[in-house]
Design a protein around this nucleic acid. Structure first.
Length: 641
DNA sequence: ACGGGTGTCACG
DNA sequence: TCGTGACAC
């Protein structure tokens, strides 16, 4: 929770940078003919023209608004250009915009700590850069600075004359300028310069706010759009907040803001000032109450987190009304698609950023016809995340089935009908979270392991798609929870494989505990391989040790021609439920580093040879993780966009 | 029957 | 810890 800072000592320089109608700009860069024209980005245009998710400023002049339907937009602005969001696997695919956002971040992160707040917004802490600039450059430097760069809106202190002062140069050179203001002025110059770089390198415009904390910077970035920036000097804060409608404040746009208005009669942030902390705390809790008291005074100690990569990845889709999924097999098909996308994104994250996710979560919404409150709560479920598309799909389906059991079970529902047994899924999503730095070598190992079973995993996936159809669930008969869980071939190989058995025991607590502690080896490479075919699974071994001491090697003597491909026989062997043979298996599948004949490496795919050689020489790996600013690589416009 | 798809955070 | 809800863009 944001901590209050004594305002006097909070002379930070914080910027909030917000891309202007970002998705539209991305599309306009791809299609420059659209520049300057009323344009909107829309997804799914089949129903009422699709929903608008971004609207160009030209189109806004006609009253086109986000959350309008394409058809409505055409009504108020017949000449509007509607661009569709890319679709992949039957759902909107936002990767284009994510990647474009990354390009921007990589530029904005050049001058200070940078926090990626959303796909198109960042916060910057420019305190150090501003101090440095101020100490190295006396005010005369301004003459050397491009005039363009000095164009900022500076909020004035007075209630209504708060309009703004002309530009930073003038403002900065006031005789009365305080130190804090000078720092902000430097911040503004830095931000203007960064925005110029963004424009030159990406062709995107953005707006920005510069202030002493995040809250005020965010407020300011929205005050002059598009393609402008606004500074909030300390002396203007009180006047600004006094008349600011409470709901304009971040976090107060929803229920809390409503409560403040209707319960306390607070309409502006200034109105909050009358309330003593205790009162606010009493009503809203210690944290929220304190926070409210502080923001009324323009105080927010919230730090800019140095984080430019997301903390989770998710993909989901809604199936409104008539499109609701009523058969397990449809759910499974969609789940497979969602998981496939998720898996790709996880793999990119691993390749580019050397990070691995540890938790897989499934969310859904569902209704149950025949039930008073039809949109009942469909529980979320999570489990350890195993890499590999097929595994993610398998686990997601198990999670779904488990949740469905809860959903149906909690309220005795006679699940009669055929395809439609009374329930319908109106939204599905899978997400991956708890993303941590991967131990060195993880990417190679996983890549290696997957190269062992590309077709095997897909055939496995096919099975699990087909089997449920043959299970007597849909056409006739009611499906029981236990039946649900039989979906898929389920080679219940190892006891600790993520199996969710809601039929017999709805995720018994102890099992859960054991599972997670088993898995916990946060850094264990084995963790990522859990359940993988060539598994040398044994939670007793620390990943780092294994990575350096033991290397899984394909039994190339069995299929000399293709050392990377497993025979079915081998697959069977390793997926046998004989967990007790861990040790034995380990020996079967691993070698001590010094026992490895280096020539083995030559049989590996060229892409990973180098990395694997790296493992074999632990001493030389000084700080191999840092190899190449992965982030920089990630953000480089590697593709035409 | 929907702004949709993502993302973060606070709370119990 | 997990699951939920709120909020935001």
């Amino acid at each position: 929770m944001p901590v209050a800072r004594p305002e006097l000592s909070d002379a930070r320089v914080i910027a909030h940078v917000d891309m202007d109608c970002f998705y539209v700009q991305v599309e306009q860069r791809k299609q420059p003919e659209l520049r300057g024209l009323p344009t909107a980005v829309v997804q799914y245009n089949s129903w009422k023209g699709g929903g608008l998710i971004a609207v160009s400023y030209e189109a806004r002049k006609y009253g086109v608004k986000r959350s309008m339907r394409g058809d409505e937009a055409k009504e108020v602005c017949p000449q509007i250009h509607l661009v569709q969001v890319p679709v992949a696997r039957g759902k909107a695919d936002l990767n284009l915009y994510r990647n474009a956002g990354s390009e921007v971040v990589s530029i904005l992160a050049r001058k200070g700590r940078c926090e990626r707040a959303s796909i198109d917004e960042v916060y910057l802490d420019l305190t150090d850069a501003a101090k440095t600039m101020l100490s190295e450059n006396p005010p005369e430097m301004l003459e050397a600075v491009d005039d363009e760069v000095l164009k900022s809106h500076v909020l004035g202190p007075d209630e209504d004359e708060r309009k703004e002062v002309e530009n930073v140069r003038e403002w900065f050179c006031r005789s009365s300028a305080e130190h804090r203001d000078k720092l902000l002025a430097c911040g503004a110059i830095i931000v203007a310069d960064l925005r110029m770089q963004v424009l030159k390198e990406t062709q995107f415009t953005c707006s920005a706010g510069i202030a002493h904390n995040k809250m005020l910077a965010k407020l300011a970035s929205g005050m002059n759009k598009p393609a402008q920036q606004t500074v909030v000097p300390f002396s203007s804060v009180e006047g600004l907040l006094a008349s600011l409608p409470i709901k304009k404040m971040k976090q107060l746009g929803g229920k809390l803001g409503n409560s403040l208005q209707s319960d306390l009669g607070v309409n502006t942030v200034g109105d909050l000032l009358q309330f003593p902390v205790e009162k606010l705390q009493e009503r809203y809790g210690i944290n929220t109450g304190t926070w409210l008291w502080n923001i009324a005074r323009g105080i927010s100690g919230d730090e800019v987190e140095g984080r430019i990569l997301p903390k989770s990845h998710g993909c989901g889709k809604n199936f409104p009304g008539p499109q609701a999924l009523r058969k397990i097999t449809s759910v499974q098909r969609w789940l497979n698609d969602l998981c496939e996308e998720l898996s790709e994104r996880l793999q990119s994250d691993l390749d580019q950023n050397k990070r691995v996710a540890h938790t897989l979560t499934l969310h859904a919404r569902a209704y149950k016809s025949n039930d008073s409150d039809s949109q009942r709560k469909f529980p979320s479920k999570s489990c350890p995340l195993r890499y590999g598309t097929a595994k993610i799909q398998e686990d997601a389906l198990k999670l779904f089935n488990s949740a469905l059991c809860d959903f149906l079970g909690s309220h005795r529902g006679e699940t009669q009908g055929n395809p439609n047994s009374g329930w319908g899924v109106t939204a599905l999503s899978v997400s991956a979270s708890k993303i941590l730095a991967a131990p060195p070598g993880t990417a190679s190992i996983l890549r290696f392991f997957h190269s062992c079973e590309p077709s095997s995993s897909s055939s496995e996936q096919n099975f699990s798609e087909i089997i449920p159809d043959s299970v007597p669930l849909s056409p006739s008969g009611s499906l029981s929870c236990s039946e649900l869980n039989q979906a898929g071939p389920q080679k219940r190989s190892s006891a600790e494989e993520t199996q969710i058995n809601c039929g017999s025991s709805t995720l018994n607590r102890d099992d859960q505990k054991r599972k997670s502690s088993n898995y916990k080896g946060g850094c264990s490479i084995l963790g990522y391989l859990q359940g993988s075919k060539p598994s040398c699974s044994s939670s007793k071994y620390e990943g780092a040790e294994i990575a350096q001491e033991a290397l899984p090697v394909p039994p190339s003597e069995h299929n000399p021609g293709r050392p990377l491909k497993r025979s079915p026989e081998e697959e069977n062997r390793v997926s046998q439920p004989s967990l007790d043979h861990n040790l034995q298996r380990r020996e079967m599948w691993t070698y001590k580093v010094d026992e490895i004949d280096p020539s083995v490496i030559d049989e590996l795919p060229p892409e990973i040879q180098e990395e694997v050689r790296g493992w074999l020489r632990p001493p030389k790996r000084a700080n191999p993780v840092k190899r190449g600013s992965s982030i920089t690589n990630y953000y480089l416009p590697s593709r035409k966009m």
